[in-house]
């Protein structure tokens, strides 16, 4: 749906912020632009809705070059969320949320309905907040409003520049979860800037890892963690990349390739875990159990087999390809 073709951005005469980037964001997918500060993530994002011009190459939106589209109309079809939430202090929460529908001249009833619908989406009371102003809200609440404001006119795509970057870790986790569950229903096409590898792993269907304006690797979080394309990627994801990747693999992934054990040597009872438990949690259970194993149960709570350290180890090894080019530094 959003397609970068050899996109380059040069500021002034010699600052190459984005260098020959090509990547594809498919419909309904979250692609996280990840990389250290100054690597060109924001620039790459802002070229999609024309906030930055393209120096060379092209970006297609729904197959059409964005340079051939009407800028204002394009922007109203793409939700935009920024880190400092950008709520308008002179408008009430309701006016903020419904500003794009307002610009699109929706009638009052429709705007009102939409406002209430959006507020319930993020669990805020529509009446309570209707006449309040942004400064009367907490940072987390403001950011939620920023997100639903971008969703208001139901745009097919969203651009989000470190939308949760200014929040403290606990609120951030909660809003991330909340946003993911909203996204599961809405299926927006999302470009999401982050400099936090953990956030990228959690939010991204794919991650585009950048360095100095160049795309280092564009792949699923699991592949980025298991098969880093070069030293930079492996360094960026960190020594604990295997531990990190445990968080995005679940028991139901593992049972596709590896058979659970039928029984344990001792008859002691062990902890039970469901199929949608992450391998990271399973590893935790294994480490704290004397039997060094966990019983896996299906939806009817029947034990379908046992998982232990050896099986997790075998699964994780099978994920990284044989000819892994990475040397651990």
């Amino acid at each position: 749906m959003i397609q970068y073709n050899n996109v380059t951005k040069v500021y002034g005469d010699d600052i190459t912020a984005v260098d020959q980037v090509s990547l594809n964001v498919n419909e309904g997918e979250i692609v996280v632009l990840l990389g250290p500060s100054g690597c060109g993530k924001t620039t790459l994002l802002r070229m999609v809705n024309g906030l930055e011009t393209i120096t060379d190459g092209d970006i297609l939106f729904n197959g059409e070059s964005i340079q051939s589209l009407n800028e204002i109309e394009l922007r109203r079809k793409i939700g935009y969320v920024i880190q400092s939430n950008g709520l308008f202090p002179n408008m009430t929460i309701e006016q903020n949320v419904t500003i794009v529908p307002h610009l699109l001249k929706w009638d009052q009833n429709k705007k009102n309905e939409r406002y209430e619908e959006l507020m319930s989406l993020v669990g805020l009371d529509a009446e309570d907040y209707r006449k309040r102003y942004p400064h009367e809200l907490s940072g987390g609440q403001q950011q939620r409003i920023g997100v639903i404001r971008a969703l208001a006119a139901d745009p097919p795509a969203m651009l989000m520049d470190e939308p949760f970057g200014a929040l403290d870790p606990i609120i951030r986790e909660r809003i991330q979860d909340e946003f993911l569950s909203i996204q599961r229903e809405l299926n927006k096409t999302i470009l999401f800037v982050s400099h936090d590898i953990n956030e990228a792993i959690k939010m991204g269907d794919k991650i585009a890892l950048m360095k100095n304006g160049q795309l280092m690797q564009f792949d699923t979080p699991s592949n980025i963690l298991q098969n880093p394309a070069n030293d930079f990627v492996s360094q960026f994801v960190g020594q604990d990349r295997t531990i990190k990747s445990l968080t995005i693999h679940f028991v139901y992934d593992l049972v596709k390739t590896i058979e659970l054990k039928d029984s344990l040597s001792s008859s002691a009872t062990v902890k039970k875990a469901s199929l949608d438990t992450s391998l990271r949690d399973i590893l935790g259970f294994v480490l704290e159990s004397e039997e060094q194993a966990v019983a896996i149960v299906n939806e009817e709570q029947e034990i379908i087999g046992y998982l232990d350290f050896e099986l997790i180890n075998r699964y994780m090894v099978s994920l990284s390809s044989e000819d892994d080019p990475v040397r651990v530094p």
Binding site: L74, R75, R76, I82, L87, F88, L103
Partner: peptide
């Protein structure tokens, strides 16, 4: 007027006169 407001407004598809009358002037009032 905070530049992030202008940025957000532009990104949402405000026209220049809408940015002036709906964002800049009210916040500078």
């Amino acid at each position: 007027v905070n530049s992030s407001l202008i940025d957000a407004a532009q990104g949402m598809g405000f026209k220049p006169y809408q940015i002036l009358f709906r964002i800049e002037l009210p916040n500078a009032a």
